[in-house]
Simulated assay, not measured.
Amino acid sequence: MTLHDFLALPHRFRWGGVGGDDCTTFCGTWLQESAGVDPAEKYRGTYSTAKGAHDILARAGGVVACAAAALEPAGCKRVQHPQDGDVGVVKAPSGLDGEAKEICAIRFGPLWALLSPSGVVAKKVDHVAVWRAPGGDHKE
């Protein structure tokens, strides 16, 4: 499945990645479709609210630490220069107040695609950390 095909699917926001995805499991679903690994597998169904998600992230030491702990054992490599299809943690406006928060997203051209309650949104935001899936067809 191409990244374009994946982003065009009718994504549904659901905390915990059951019956849909949240911003973190969205990246796991992309990696499952594109590389055959699901780094979010052990988290799917273990929470169903924003508080549940935030509790998991806090226990892991934050979004970047949680992403690294899930992605690196799945064979993803940390890279400095994001390319299409890479997953990462970005700083993006979130919630009703629009405060910038660290969330997981997928690199799509010069933008980052993320899943919000209203669906997939592509934004030009700054990345904090980036990983490339195993077997990625581009080199760092």
Rank of each mutant, 00 (worst) to 15 (best):
residue 99 E to C: 09
residue 99 E to K: 15
residue 99 E to I: 06
residue 100 A to R: 15
residue 100 A to T: 12
residue 100 A to I: 03
residue 100 A to H: 14
residue 100 A to M: 13
residue 101 K to M: 13
residue 101 K to F: 12
residue 101 K to H: 14
residue 101 K to S: 13
residue 101 K to V: 12
residue 102 E to P: 13
residue 102 E to C: 07
residue 102 E to A: 09
residue 102 E to R: 10
residue 102 E to G: 11
residue 102 E to S: 13
residue 103 I to P: 03
residue 103 I to H: 05
residue 103 I to M: 12
residue 103 I to R: 10
residue 104 C to L: 06
residue 104 C to M: 12
residue 104 C to G: 12
residue 105 A to D: 07
residue 105 A to F: 07
residue 105 A to V: 03
residue 105 A to H: 04
residue 106 I to H: 13
residue 106 I to L: 11
residue 107 R to H: 12
residue 107 R to S: 09
residue 108 F to I: 04
residue 108 F to N: 03
residue 108 F to D: 01
residue 109 G to V: 02
residue 110 P to F: 03
residue 110 P to I: 05
residue 110 P to Q: 06
residue 111 L to R: 10
residue 111 L to D: 08
residue 111 L to S: 09
residue 112 W to Y: 11
residue 112 W to R: 00
residue 112 W to P: 01
residue 112 W to M: 02
residue 113 A to H: 09
residue 113 A to D: 14
residue 113 A to Q: 08
residue 113 A to W: 09
residue 114 L to V: 04
residue 114 L to E: 00
residue 114 L to W: 03
residue 114 L to N: 02
residue 114 L to K: 04
residue 115 L to S: 06
residue 115 L to R: 03
residue 115 L to D: 01
residue 116 S to F: 07
residue 116 S to R: 15
residue 116 S to T: 14
residue 116 S to W: 11
residue 116 S to K: 14
residue 116 S to E: 13
residue 117 P to E: 05
residue 117 P to K: 06
residue 117 P to H: 13
residue 118 S to R: 15
residue 118 S to M: 15
residue 118 S to I: 10
residue 118 S to H: 15
residue 118 S to T: 14
residue 118 S to Q: 15
residue 118 S to C: 10
residue 119 G to A: 07
residue 119 G to Y: 10
residue 120 V to I: 14
residue 120 V to E: 06
residue 120 V to F: 14
residue 120 V to R: 10
residue 120 V to K: 08
residue 121 V to E: 08
residue 121 V to L: 10
residue 121 V to H: 03
residue 121 V to Q: 06
residue 121 V to R: 04
residue 121 V to C: 08
residue 121 V to I: 10
residue 122 A to R: 04
residue 122 A to Q: 06
residue 122 A to N: 04
residue 122 A to M: 05
residue 122 A to I: 02
residue 122 A to C: 15
residue 123 K to R: 15
residue 123 K to N: 12
residue 123 K to Y: 05
residue 123 K to W: 08
residue 123 K to M: 14
residue 123 K to V: 08
residue 123 K to D: 09
residue 124 K to I: 01
residue 124 K to W: 00
residue 124 K to M: 03
residue 124 K to S: 06
residue 124 K to R: 08
residue 125 V to G: 09
residue 125 V to A: 11
residue 125 V to H: 11
residue 125 V to E: 12
residue 125 V to F: 11
residue 126 D to R: 11
residue 126 D to P: 02
residue 126 D to Q: 12
residue 126 D to S: 11
residue 126 D to K: 08
residue 127 H to S: 11
residue 127 H to L: 00
residue 127 H to F: 13
residue 127 H to I: 00
residue 128 V to N: 00
residue 128 V to I: 12
residue 128 V to M: 02
residue 128 V to P: 12
residue 129 A to S: 14
residue 129 A to T: 03
residue 129 A to N: 07
residue 129 A to C: 12
residue 130 V to E: 05
residue 130 V to I: 13
residue 131 W to Q: 02
residue 131 W to A: 04
residue 131 W to E: 02
residue 131 W to N: 03
residue 131 W to H: 06
residue 132 R to E: 01
residue 132 R to A: 01
residue 133 A to M: 10
residue 133 A to G: 09
residue 133 A to R: 13
residue 133 A to I: 02
residue 134 P to N: 02
residue 134 P to G: 01
residue 134 P to E: 02
residue 134 P to R: 03
residue 134 P to Y: 00
